[in-house]
Structure formats: structure tokens, C-alpha cells
């Protein structure tokens, strides 16, 4: 499974700059990111081309960060497709803990990143692919 880099950051001026500075020094390309905010702190979640390098670079600077297995699904960008994906996950008892998505080719292709409980055990990749979704691995992600 591909991995997402989750970082604990305080919500105060300069924190995003510090994180991105370290990543840019390591020549890391950010493919997507989102922040779960709790007012005074949050968890920043990054999809990057070199997750291990990024993780080490941030941990080295003292950041509390961790790599988490996620499901990255390529979806055709048209009405009803996210619903179809969510229905499939529900049907197979996969609980979505957090998710974020982005459109990579408008009208054609979107990417959905899913942190879930249960996906690692279920043979979900095959099920999704059978239904016409493309499930991405580290290599495909780095080429996005």
C-alpha cells in the first residue's frame, strides 16, 4: 500500500513554512496535502513522491510524524463516482477514518486518498479494480 506522511503541527504562523522548507531542501515533490485542524494544532497529511526520505528529513528535525498506509484510488471525474466508491467500501466493511481528494485532469480523472480501517486485510484492491477503479501504488503516485 502507498503511504501518506502525517505530521503533527501547531497552528501558529510559520509552521507550514518550516515543514515545506525541509521538504524542499530534500527535493521532495508534494503531490497532494490536507490539514485536519483542531484550532491550536492539526495534523498535516502529505502525499509525496519520496515518502521515506520526507519522513526521515522531518523526523530528523524533531517533528512528530509517521507514515500511514492509505488507499489511493484513481476515479473517473464524473457525477456519482465518489458515491460508487464509498458504497463499495461500506459494502466491504471498510471504515473511512479520513479522506481527501483532488482532480488531476478536470472532466477526466480525480484521485481519492483514503485512510481506513480494514482495507489492509480485505482484498480491496481486486474488488475496486473489478468495479473499474484504478488503485495506485507508490510508483504510480510518484508519476502523477
Amino acid at each position: 500500500m502507498p503511504r501518506q506522511l502525517n505530521i503533527f503541527i501547531e497552528n501558529r504562523p510559520g509552521r507550514l513554512k518550516s515543514v515545506t522548507e525541509i521538504l524542499s531542501q530534500g527535493n521532495i515533490n508534494i503531490i497532494a496535502f490536507t490539514i485536519q485542524d483542531r484550532g491550536d494544532f492539526g495534523v498535516m497529511k502529505l502525499l509525496v513522491d519520496k515518502p521515506d526520505v520526507a519522513h526521515l528529513a522531518l523526523a530528523d528535525k524533531g517533528f512528530a510524524c509517521v507514515l500511514k498506509d492509505i488507499l489511493v484510488v484513481s476515479i473517473q471525474d464524473k457525477p456519482g463516482n465518489l458515491n460508487k466508491l464509498a458504497s463499495l467500501l461500506l459494502k466491504h466493511n471498510i471504515n473511512i477514518i479520513d479522506t481527501h481528494g483532488f482532480v488531476i485532469e478536470p472532466g477526466n480523472r480525480g484521485i481519492c486518498c483514503i485512510e481506513s480501517a480494514g482495507a489492509e486485510n480485505a482484498n480491496i484492491t481486486k474488488i475496486l479494480e473489478k468495479e473499474g477503479f484504478e488503485v495506485l501504488g507508490d510508483k504510480e503516485i510518484s508519476e502523477l
Binding site: 483542531r38 495534523v43 512528530a64
Partner: peptide, 15 residues
């Protein structure tokens, strides 16, 4: 301060 080694990446852990 959060102890890095025990951070699981889950915001619910922090809550």
C-alpha cells in the same frame, strides 16, 4: 510537548 515516538498520525489520538 507531544512525544514523537508515540505519535500515531491520527488526530483522534491527540483529541
Amino acid at each position: 510537548e507531544i512525544y514523537s515516538k508515540l505519535f500515531t498520525g491520527d488526530i483522534r489520538q491527540l483529541d
